[in-house]
Write a protein that binds this DNA or RNA. Structure first.
Lengths: 212, 212
DNA sequence: GGGTCATTGTGAAATCCGTAACAGATGGCC
DNA sequence: GGCCATCTGTTACGGATTTCACAATGACCC
């Protein structure tokens, strides 16, 4: 249906939604594309264009109703319900993710945690008990799970991704420093602070005296 | 000088470099744009075009020398030296970052850690002692620091960013769930797993029966 | 050493995306 | 109630990015 909406647009919507939530918290009831753009370093035209893919949410001469637009964006993005998430990998990074308090308030519930290390199986973490990876497939099939988070070493990551995909997972948040292979129809987002750093150094270098 | 290279291209270079490092580890000495593209889900043409911004690194009929191209990319990105990094914020997230072992092997050294909580000042973390935020400016001015990592609550983040910028920092890795304002000439990368999740849900929703 | 095959580097074409600009609508004011 | 100032939604444009396609080149083989 509406499948020609550019991915860059979709990626900006959560940013808009976040800003709107902040404005709502601050007691603002109306915001213009100009004001929102100032907040986010985005041109007002881009905001209006992005929103126009989905409908007409503003009022000329006035702007957007903060609560109203926020509600519509949440609906569009599917944030008006809770999502069930599994986490695979409970090393340092996995532990931090399991105990991170930022997902649940936004509707992402980590319903199970898996690891391949039999030693850690059974230990409690972030409100769940660690299960063994061997039980991953069975769990996914008997429980509705929407999203998988991969936090295993790079060498094991593709294998984990494959198992998630085979079990029907449609979205994967990958923390492993590698590029996962997934079939068409599965959405992946990669979180890799090292890559982010490595692209910034290019720009620092550009600006510094070429001598050193 | 070479300042019309698209940012998207710069962002892909570290991905190429990572894949090349993996290939080198696997003992491969030569790789074609086709093979590298298969590995990374990128078209061969894109790889060749990206590289062509910087020079001619391949040999027709053969491909690219893995070690050679890796070395050139590292040089282009400035990864052939170590970078000095400060971390601001030692809450849950900041602690995880301070103790994350992934930065140092890639040349990013966290040389100091700051927090506004006087209770935690002096405590050791990830090999450094926590300093008080009041000393941030002085530290930055007397020590060469290239990059700042922001891991404070959203409400405090802009203030931290401003202080980093005022002290001359040129690159910021922001973990706070907000959009930082920086002057032209400062590079920012945001790490926000929640935003990543929130864009994926759109696609899951698209594919699921519209009924529910 | 010449022929063959594979693969690069690169202009040109196609596509995608962002910006500009304006017509049309809304609210406020007198 | 009419006028003015404001701000949206949208179309058209232009720029940026990706893809295409092929000439040029180097390696390998006999």
């Amino acid at each position: 249906m509406t499948l020609e909406i550019p991915e860059v647009v979709i990626n900006r919507l959560p940013v808009y939604a976040r800003a709107l939530a902040d404005l709502a918290d601050a007691g603002e009831s109306v915001v213009s594309s100009q004001a929102l753009g100032d907040l986010l370093d985005v041109t007002p035209a881009q905001i209006r264009k992005d929103l126009s893919y989905f409908g007409r949410f503003g009022k000329q001469g006035r702007g957007y109703n903060v609560q109203g637009l926020l509600a519509r964006l949440r609906e569009i993005l599917g944030l008006d319900r809770r999502w069930r998430v599994v986490l695979v990998g409970v090393g340092r990074l996995g532990q931090a993710i399991a105990e991170y308090g930022g997902f649940s308030p936004q509707g992402f519930e980590i319903v199970a945690v898996f690891d391949s290390d039999r030693e850690s199986v059974g230990k409690p973490i972030g409100g769940a008990k660690i299960r063994h990876s061997d039980d991953l497939d069975a769990f996914l099939r008997t429980n509705g799970v929407d999203i998988g988070i991969v936090a295993v070493p790079a060498l094991a990551a593709q294998q984990v991704v494959d198992r998630l995909v085979k079990a029907g997972i449609q979205a994967i948040l990958n923390y492993a420093p590698m590029t996962p292979h997934v079939p068409h129809g599965v959405t992946v987002r990669n979180i890799d602070p090292v890559l982010a750093m490595q692209s910034m150094t290019f720009y620092i270098k550009q600006r510094e005296p070429a001598g050193k």
